[in-house]
Nucleic acid binder design. Structure first.
Lengths: 280, 280
DNA sequence: ATCACTTACGGGTGACGTAAAAATC
DNA sequence: GATTTTTACGTCACCCGTAAGTGAT
């Protein structure tokens, strides 16, 4: 059977076009690469190169072989990544979410519940969450909609409602029963980065508004405390933040302002996740 | 990068279940395999086995890794087969057909036309022909119907008509203008093996008939010469066989008795095949 | 002369076999 | 005692680097 190092060297030659360039990239000497390619031809029982005295290039066989080499190398890479991800998933609990709310709510409880296991939580776009669920990077993911996947379960995981955070002097404070996105479209808001789906929601619902982004929550809090600009809060974060007499929170009445979350996980992980799921 | 021999050994262990059995299958000693599996775990940075003092088994990681190992090994096998087939196709002309008629007709001309190249012809079912065309086992294949494939051309390649070969004493000789399958359904026929599509055709059209199969054409000729049983001939083979005064050939009138052939080949092979195609 | 590839030679890593130990059935 | 795995040790293959050779630009 042909060893991987020969395929790596063939792929490098296919990429760089000359033995000298490829050998440099591979951190081996050029004669060594030359010998390896001869060996590869011997083992396949086929010529892979057109040779002249001082030139070498892939022939038709070589092109096909190089394509396969790349596919095989890619599959080996995938293998190590997948196996290592699976191993991590057996030693630590990793949860991905499309919004920070659910993670903030459970973070402390999770580390307490799984005291013998490191717990990590990540905020990622849905596409990456699904890929990570499939490849065992995440044992559970939180999406803002139901989703049935083969071999997976999907259970409700609470909801989060967006609140408008207003300076007491703001004209909209009279609407204490609730506001609608369209009434504020065009206003300038303070907003923290990495709010997952909320970013897209507020930009969609208030397309004419400007959003001043703070890279950390601390920055955001500092600005909100010392500014009259409207900002955002949510019913989930409210529980964890001290009340702020400089700010009045008013609910958004629009449907999109309340997101319902669902926890999706592979059935094989149900047992591990039971303590977590019972909290939902 | 993880070398192939480690994956081969992992796959063997996954298949045989114990190090001793796998090592025997691999023709290496058991301690050597034991060390290899430890090395594989080191290189992946992950445990692959559950070990007790005198027992070892794949854990969850190991099962996943073994699956990948098998896929990678299969791809390497495919690579060598494909590259070797491509190489053969560059040194010899190989034509596959669904029926022997076209091959017999062209065989001598082909070897003369491609005097510098070995020429081989094979009779195979359509499924294998198509696979062989895709993988460059065949530069051209002959099917009994048109077929448009991406990157391929399809040109007519003549036709073949089935003839009924009768002993002069057979009652059906009076039908010298032609017979129909249904008139002979239930009769017993002599027939040579490896007639490709014709086998299915006569069995479909005369489901109540019995076919006595001869494994070689010589056997068939000998039996036909010394028997009163009906047999088959075709307009193509008639040209190449001496006339037989003991036999009268009568055409089948059914549509299925005349098959139209098409030659299908990759466009990149058109140049090579030009002399062949001009004969069609 | 420089560049690119091949051939020749020597060294060190590592994969394998042999031998032996440990543990379970 | 038979089976299975692991550890210890020596050996040989082979992969690589260095050096030299050949031909083309």
């Amino acid at each position: 059977m042909i060893e991987i190092y020969l395929l790596e060297q063939l792929a490098a030659f296919a990429e760089y076009g000359t033995l000298s360039a490829a050998s440099e990239a591979l951190h081996i000497t050029q004669p060594s690469l030359s010998r390896s390619m001869q060996k590869l031809e011997r083992e396949l029982g086929v010529t892979l190169f057109e040779r002249t005295k001082n030139h070498i290039a892939l022939n038709e066989n070589g092109v096909l072989a190089a394509e396969y080499a790349e596919r095989i190398l890619a599959m080996e890479d995938e293998m190590t990544l997948r196996v290592q991800a699976l191993d991590r998933s057996r030693h630590m609990l990793s949860i991905g979410s499309c919004a920070p709310g659910p993670l903030i709510k459970w973070a402390s409880q999770l580390t307490a519940m799984y005291s013998d296991m490191p717990v990590t939580t990540e905020l990622k776009p849905e596409e990456e969450l699904l890929k990570g669920l499939d490849t065992d990077v995440y044992q559970a993911i939180i999406l803002n909609h139901e989703l049935e996947l083969p071999g997976c379960d999907c259970v409700p995981a609470g909801s989060e409602s967006l609140l408008l955070s207003l300076h007491p002097g703001h004209p909209a404070v009279v609407l204490e029963n609730g506001v609608r996105f369209k009434d504020l479209d065009g206003d300038t808001f303070l907003m923290v980065a990495d709010v997952g789906i909320w970013d897209e929601i507020v930009r969609n619902e208030m397309p004419r508004s400007t959003f001043i982004i703070q890279s950390t929550l601390d920055e955001n809090v500092a600005l909100v405390d010392n500014s009259t600009l409207p900002a955002f809060a949510s019913d989930l974060t409210e529980e964890f933040r001290r009340p702020d007499e400089n700010r009045i929170h008013i609910p958004f009445l629009d449907e999109e302002a309340t997101q319902h979350f669902y926890c999706i996980f592979k059935k094989k992980n149900r047992k591990l996740l039971t303590p977590f799921l019972s909290q939902l």
